[in-house]
């Protein structure tokens, strides 16, 4: 049975698609959604200056709750939003293990750039996860 679904969010269009897909699955299965964002190790720049770790954390938490996870709030699905620090792959897999997650949902590509159709984060999650992983296509098929 699917009781708890973890989805990575980063505010990208694909991540929004992944979140909406996860919400629909959770509604169907009465599962709980864990929306997770890992802040990574790079400092955040705003208006030409770097934010302090506290500021960065504060702003990201705000974004996570009120913007990136807004569809989740509006869906009525049982959920929790988690802001983690560290490498996205490690943070995500650790929390998946600790929280006995049944399924991990990732978009094919988040904010990263490059030509491969699968982002490096998604690739490493597929490679290292013990939990089954759903990889969503970059865009739905026509028709």
């Amino acid at each position: 049975m699917i009781k708890r679904i973890l989805v990575g969010v980063d505010g990208s269009a694909n991540s929004l698609g992944a979140l909406n897909w996860t919400i629909a699955l959770a509604q169907q299965t009465n599962a709980e959604v864990m929306a997770v964002h890992a802040m990574g190790l790079k400092p955040i720049e705003e208006n030409g200056k770097f934010l302090s770790p506290e500021e960065a954390r504060h702003i990201t938490a705000e974004l996570l709750d009120s913007v990136w996870c807004a569809p989740l709030k509006n869906s009525g699905v049982k959920h929790q939003n988690l802001l983690l620090e560290g490498s996205p792959v490690t943070a995500l897999l650790e929390i998946a293990d600790e929280s006995a997650v049944d399924l991990i949902v990732v978009g094919t590509r988040g904010h990263s750039l490059g030509e491969a159709s699968i982002g490096s984060t998604a690739h490493r999650i597929i490679e290292e996860s013990k939990t089954p992983v759903v990889v969503l296509p970059p865009r739905p098929a026509d028709g």
């Binding site: 897909w21 399924l103 597929i126 996860s129 013990k130 089954p132 992983v133 759903v134 990889v135 969503l136 296509p137 739905p140 098929a141």
Partner: peptide
């Protein structure tokens, strides 16, 4: 073009 569920 549809979601892929990978099972180890």
């Amino acid at each position: 073009n549809i979601p892929v569920l990978l099972v180890r």
